[in-house]
Nucleic acid binder design. Structure first.
Lengths: 139, 139
DNA sequence: AAAATTAGTAAAGATACTTGACGATCTCCC
DNA sequence: GGGAGATCGTCAAGTATCTTTACTAATTTT
């Protein structure tokens, strides 16, 4: 472990944080993977269209379909027709979904809080900044 | 875009950098994915055992097997018996492998250099530090 | 020399995506 | 008002990258 390339470092950091979220979710007995949890927390109170979810998550709508299918068969969300657009449907949280989203938020917050504690607020914010810059990566 | 959780931020940053490496490798006409390139550059001059490669990459030896299988059928490496241990084999670069490793290094360096330029040396080093801390993440 | 460990491998499957195609519906523009 | 083209959700299939389980052969430990 040590002086690796940026690429591996990014991946390792992601995996470490992702792993911690996964463990904490297991302990919380939610039947959710980190990926499912991440999807759950980007659904609005009023429900969100599939394509919007995909856009927020930065993946294709087909990929988001599979996530939503899982969430639906797990009883976390249901699909309702969108009253304003007959093509569209709205992905909406069930009561269980609302509960688990809260749990997911708690878990994710606590993992982030731990990271922040570990790094110190200053370095943590610097990290976020740098990551955003990399992700946007103009140039 | 914007104020997302740490997890997504890490993933997005990884994907952005990974994507840039992939594009540059394509342009360089190496038939390598970023993952293959990353594997290629951790092989020592004298050759390296599969298990050691897996350890360096932080994946299982079975996963590394598949990568090495790909590299071997692409003609980048070959497997030789290890003279000191009849169980073991040494993964060794072919002439083509040596060439492509050099290309991979150039590409990865240039992407990292670009990131460093984008962030400034100071923030870049801070990023590396923070990522390492996260990855090691002693509770 | 028996017991436990380690190196490589095979096989299967999980995960998390992708691309391509398609019908139904909506929007734009003449 | 009506056709051209875009968009929404979906089905289907495929890909990349990893994991778990299981096994043989060789080595090290005791």
């Amino acid at each position: 472990m040590s002086d690796q390339g940026l690429l591996r470092l990014l991946l390792e950091a992601f995996r470490a944080v992702d792993g911690r979220v996964g463990e904490a979710l297991d302990r919380g007995a939610a039947g959710l993977s980190p990926g499912h949890a991440s999807a759950l927390i980007i659904i609005d109170r009023g429900g969100t269209r599939l394509t919007d979810l995909a856009g927020r998550a930065g993946i294709t709508k087909q990929a988001m379909m599979q996530v939503v299918d899982d969430l639906e068969s797990g009883g976390y969300v249901r699909r309702q027709p969108d009253t304003r657009d007959a093509r569209a449907k709205v992905v909406k949280l069930t009561a269980k979904g609302v509960r688990e989203r809260a749990e997911a938020r708690r878990v994710i917050s606590s993992v982030e809080a731990r990271a922040r504690r570990q790094l110190g607020a200053r370095r943590f914010e610097a990290l976020r900044d740098a990551l955003e810059a990399l992700a946007d990566g103009e140039a």
